[in-house]
Design a protein around this nucleic acid. Structure first.
Lengths: 152, 152
DNA sequence: CATGGTTTTGTACAAAGTCTAGAAAATGCC
DNA sequence: GGCATTTTCTAGACTTTGTACAAAACCATG
């Protein structure tokens, strides 16, 4: 059996910030509560990488909209539904990536900055056999980088 | 500029469990204290993936050998010296991999199991340009897998 | 065997994330 | 619309991973 790059593709659903958020959420089986819509508006305004902490801060910038538990619940829900991709590169927190197109990441270990690598800029060949009884849940490729002058 | 797979190579140092651990540690600039030797003996007996928690439990199985702080200090030290590779795939804890040869990982998201993929079984081509002013600190490729019958 | 730098230790602390029980909001049905 | 049922939200306590710190122990060297 051979695997192709297409196997990296996850369930991809794209929320269009120009269209009505509530009906798009309903379309993927998510009840569009006020909190979820507000969180979605922030995340899907443009492709971005945010931690739960950052989402919490932005959502509640002008008064209390959603609690910490709701942020975690909502991010987890969106990720399960394929609207967000969890990016695990920093042991201290999870990033949620609202760019659901196939792509990979640079992670600057000095600054904590996460940036996208378009899928076309990297090709994986000669893919390994998956262990028996398992199926792919996505492939993550992370280029860890360092600022060239930083002490290390 | 083109990158080759060799760029993935990190500082690689291999501890041989058959040889004297203390003198091998000394050779890489690590003072071989009793705690460090004991921790090294566990980690380098064979290639394995362990969390700090697991190391703590195994080290102190037959009486107190090392404290939590020492485990973290030692794992961090070994990783900085290139004896261990930190593997960040699970948001809840860091794995330390005593296989320092170039390789990648399967991570079973259902079981939390981490297994190796030999370097030869995967080839990366058409590598992306690194952002200006940065240098590589290693490339991680993680195949996230799921047990095929698991609910999801 | 005295000296002084390095390690280790216990404890306190910090931060990310989970859990829970009750309040509030959404939904479905008449 | 009104009302009952179900789902979601909230505040805060709790858990877990990991770090900070200061005192005690260790150990190489003269």
């Amino acid at each position: 059996m051979t695997y192709t790059h297409a196997m990296n593709e996850r369930t991809i659903l794209k929320i269009d910030p120009q269209q009505d958020i509530a009906s798009q959420l309903r379309k993927v089986g998510i009840t569009p509560t006020q909190q979820r819509v507000q969180i979605a508006e922030i995340l899907f305004a443009r492709p971005r990488h945010m931690s739960a902490d950052q989402v919490l801060a932005v959502v509640n910038r002008d008064g209390p909209i959603a609690s910490k538990a709701t942020i975690y619940n909502t991010l987890g829900l969106f990720a399960r539904k394929g609207l967000l991709r969890e990016v695990i590169v920093d042991p201290s927190k999870v990033f949620y990536d609202s760019n659901t197109a196939v792509h990979h990441h640079f992670f600057n270990v000095d600054t904590g900055e996460l940036t996208d690598i378009p899928s076309d800029d990297l090709i994986l060949t000669r893919m390994p056999e998956l262990p028996p009884g398992t199926e792919s849940a996505g492939i993550d490729v992370i280029f860890r980088i360092r600022s060239r002058d930083a002490a290390h």
